[in-house]
């Protein structure tokens, strides 16, 4: 259990790792927006090559990036199949068979699949190159203007950090409790849904009890370390914009221009 990685950070010293996480989050958002803005393969191709450069710079193994696709493979397949059969205009590809697939349907299916893949790999690239702490820190700082609306940005960020901190601890705990109950003959694997739900009680009750105890002790420990919320706090790690962030920002802007141009220039999907 000690091998669990929090989030999916891949340690490294690449330019992407060194980027200001606030800029990274903003650029990722722009990237996601642009992906949806792409109207044809030309624009998408531009985005794709930009992403490929990003992947190369990051030093994260391609295998790991591709693996992040696996979780949403099902959604990708469904989208592809739906597009394949629901787009009925265009030339029918196999005229003499019962399969009614048009060339336009096929293009749309491919387009959609590539789009989702770019989306997922693009956002994973951010999480692979930013530690969860940096991420929550950056979110806190980006959202800090919301303070004027009396939204407790710091509290939210603290909650995220604590959640990240305790996920591995609780995973370990669940495993321990499961083993203890299995040792008393608990049957967690067989039976229908109701039986299985009932079998969870001996695991969930101790888990809740211990989580509450942990929360209580943690609150004490935080108070003892003079924690009184976000007011008057300083941060050890400062975030500073550098030429690097400007460079990436500039690249993203030119891609934005490129996509608009390509969308305008090519009226059709392909």
């Amino acid at each position: 259990m000690k091998g669990i990685a929090i989030g999916q950070y891949y340690p490294g010293k690449s330019l992407l790792h060194k980027m200001d996480p606030r800029v990274k989050i903003l650029l990722t958002l722009v990237f996601v927006f642009l992906i949806f803005f792409c109207k044809n393969f030309w624009a998408l191709g531009l985005m794709g090559s930009f992403l490929l450069i990003g992947m190369l710079i990051s030093g994260v193994p391609f295998k790991m990036l591709i693996r992040s696709l696996r979780a949403i493979l099902f959604i990708v397949l469904i989208t592809a199949v739906l597009n394949l059969f629901y787009v009925t205009d265009g030339n029918v590809l196999f005229p003499n068979t019962f399969i009614k697939i048009t060339d336009k349907g096929l293009y749309t299916a491919i387009f959609m699949t590539v789009r989702i893949a770019c989306l997922i790999i693009g956002s994973s690239l951010m999480t692979f190159t930013t530690t969860p702490t940096m991420l929550t820190d950056a979110i806190e700082r980006l959202l800090s203007p919301l303070k004027i609306f009396k939204i407790q940005v710091h509290t939210l960020a603290m909650m995220m950090t604590l959640a990240l901190r305790f996920i591995p601890t609780l995973m370990e705990e669940i495993e321990k409790i499961m083993n203890a109950q299995k040792a008393r003959g608990a049957d967690l694997e067989s039976g229908n849904i109701i039986d299985r739900a009932k079998a969870l009680v001996p695991i969930l009750v101790p888990l809740f009890v211990s989580s509450f105890r942990r929360a209580y002790e943690l609150a004490f420990a935080m108070e003892c370390r003079c924690y009184t919320g976000g007011n008057g706090r300083t941060r050890m790690k400062q975030m500073k914009l550098s030429w690097l962030d400007l460079l990436f920002g500039f690249a993203m802007t030119s891609i934005l221009a490129g996509v608009i141009l390509l969308n305008h220039y090519f009226a059709h999907l392909i």
């Binding site: 705990e173 321990k176 409790i177 083993n179 203890a180 109950q181 299995k182 040792a183 008393r184 003959g185 049957d187 009680v201 001996p202 009750v205 101790p206 009890v209 211990s210």
Partner: peptide, 20 residues
């Protein structure tokens, strides 16, 4: 395998955390 667990009782560390 479940019947083996009745023959060999295993009590883990801090077993009070299993009470429910």
């Amino acid at each position: 395998i479940r019947s083996v667990r009745f023959k060999v009782g295993l009590c883990f560390q801090y077993p009070e955390y299993q009470l429910f």
